[in-house]
């Protein structure tokens, strides 16, 4: 049996350029990630910001000071020196066509409600009432310990979220132009199984425009991860990239590529990410202004 299983999996091989992707532009390793969420996460966790001018040179925004680098190697060397032990990872965005293969909001919500997002969840309670559905489950998590996770799905969340002590965010500005994606709104709260303190809260909201374009919003509070005051990478792999400051003083990383726009902002234990095919980068600026991101990040 062992030999048969090994033979059965032997035709599978890692992508041809895996090693090249990692070693390319070494110093610190560089890797190309293909997914939007990873792109934004990477952008947030690196304490450096990179963009490329029309001449192909790279420069770093660091605490509002601008450092110019001729090459990415020089940038990564600088980063490595400042942050020993960390690798630099620079994202490459998915094309619009590739992004179509991403799970839809409704598929994600369905997965969370039917199987949960952790291993070995013991379901304590589950049910539905009209368009609202829920599941409460207990499990052990490597990150959080013994936890109780409550998943709640409801189209009402598309208009705003109110969770005492964690989030009070009016989303009507968004709901004015986009319709809630059917079955695509989920609020997940992870609590300590003993003292019931919230350890993590995730909001995932899917919207659709009349033209069938989409927008997803992910907001996360995580007690185990502190972004502090992050700096952002502006990446030349995108058509446009910009660090934009909203009227209420929140720095937002805006990126666009192949008809898609990503926006993300991080502060302390909170983060917010948007992905859309319905807005231009300019329209996204208006949206993040209207939504009052400071309410979501403090």
């Amino acid at each position: 049996m062992k030999k048969a299983i090994q033979q059965a999996f032997s035709p599978l091989h890692a992508e041809e350029h895996t090693l090249e992707n990692i070693l390319n532009r070494t110093g610190p390793a560089r890797v190309s990630f293909l997914r939007p969420a990873r792109t934004l996460l990477v952008a947030a966790i690196l304490a450096a910001a990179l963009t490329v001018t029309a001449f192909g040179a790279d420069y770093v925004l660091n605490n509002r000071e601008v450092f110019f680098f001729d090459t990415l190697e020089a940038l990564t060397a600088q980063y490595s020196q400042a942050h020993p032990g960390n690798a630099v990872a620079v994202a490459v965005p998915s094309s619009a066509e590739e992004s179509k293969n991403m799970e839809t909001s409704a598929e994600y919500v369905e997965r969370a409600l039917s199987t949960g997002l952790f291993d070995e969840e013991t379901v304590l309670d589950a049910g539905e009432n009209g368009a609202q559905r829920w599941r409460t489950a207990q499990c052990y998590s490597d990150t959080y310990g013994d936890i109780v996770t409550k998943y709640r799905a409801s189209p009402d969340f598309a208009g705003g979220i109110e969770q005492p002590g964690l989030l009070d965010w009016d989303l009507t500005a968004l709901a004015k132009t986009m319709a809630p994606d059917t079955g695509g709104q989920l609020v997940t709260i992870i609590r300590d199984a003993g003292n019931k303190q919230p350890l993590c809260m995730k909001v995932h909201l899917g919207y659709t425009s009349d033209a069938g374009k989409r927008l997803t919003l992910n907001w996360v509070y995580d007690s185990t991860w502190d972004y502090g005051e992050p700096e952002y990478i502006l990446n030349d792999a995108y058509d446009e990239s910009e660090l934009f400051t909203t009227d209420d003083g929140v720095d937002v990383l805006l990126l666009s590529y192949d008809g898609q726009v990503w926006a993300s902002a991080y502060s302390g234990h909170r983060s917010v990410q948007f992905y859309t095919t319905a807005y231009t980068l300019g329209e996204m600026k208006e949206l993040v202004n209207e939504l009052g991101l400071s309410a979501a990040l403090t």
Partner: peptide, 19 residues
């Protein structure tokens, strides 16, 4: 396949950077 490729790259990157 795409997710498995991403994971493979991430893990190898971790190998590269680990001390």
């Amino acid at each position: 396949r795409a997710d498995a490729d991403d994971v493979t790259q991430t893990v190898l990157l971790r190998l590269y950077e680990t001390d």
